[in-house]
Amino acid sequence: MEISTLIFSITIFPGLLFMVSLAFLTQYLVRKLSARYQRRMGPSYVGPFGLLQPLFDFLKLLRVKEIVKTKYSMIRAAEFSLILGIAFIISSTILLPLSPYNVAGEFDILVFFYMTSIMPIFMLIIAALTTPNPYTNIGVSRLLSVLTIAEPAYFASLVVPVYLATRGKTPFMSISNTYIYVPNLWLQASTLVIMLLSTLAYIISVQVKAMFPPFNIPEAEQEIIAGFETEFSGPILALARLLHDLDLTIALIVGVYVLLGGPAPFRHFSVNGAIVLIIKYTILLLAVVTVKNIMGRYRIEQALTQIFKYGLIPALLSSIFALVIYH
């Protein structure tokens, strides 16, 4: 394939421009749906139906607001960490079948996981620690505590369907190869239970990764001001918010492909396929927003227990079932 296709893929679709736009749209939907759950209006004034509110919030933070700096702050390090985190998420899109220049290989799910789950969180933590504050430190320690249990659950919830779908096929453990065979996993009785357990673990772990209630402990306003982002301001806060939204967006996209079969039963780059992708993305987002709005915040020890019960145990069970049945 041509280099121009690669450049188009990483800068326009589904790279930088598309991902940032989708992240803003996702933020808009989260805010609007949450507002409707709470009988509020939500974003309404900027753009049609308030659609451009997240973009204008971002631009205002980036271009107008000032960076508030203390003598301990390392602003450049914070900026670079957050940019690196964003870059990892955006560049991971070439591993998705959505990309016109799709790169695949055996075990590319591991590369994808590293780029979209480990590095962004790691970069967010580094950025938080470069602006030291007692509240920041507590927020980071809470974030690390919940992620210690949630990340393995997230990993298992994605790896198990990929393993089952690509067993005996080439390339093995590849996202591009997975979505084609995922619908079969939902239709077979032996793999249906595994898929249900993986989906449950996925929903819970995405809730934790997005730091939405009941797991918004790392940024609990009433307890620790803003947690890990207490000292973020202006352009740095804009980058941190964008990184958070991109993290949620890429988690939902991979969920659509690995758990729900992408555009199935239609093909990629067709109108029907695009509509199905949008519907599946919205369903997953709606599930996450619904849990966000019907739950109150847990205390840290309660949260750890709940993530263990409803995230890690289903993920472990699905892994064990998959190994017992198919190894």
């Binding site: 079948p97 695949a104 084609i180 093909r267």
Partner: peptide
């Protein structure tokens, strides 16, 4: 396998 899937846009490495 559902639909008419192809991996023609995919570079396998």
């Amino acid at each position: 396998v559902y639909g008419c899937y192809s991996m023609k846009n995919t570079v396998i490495l």
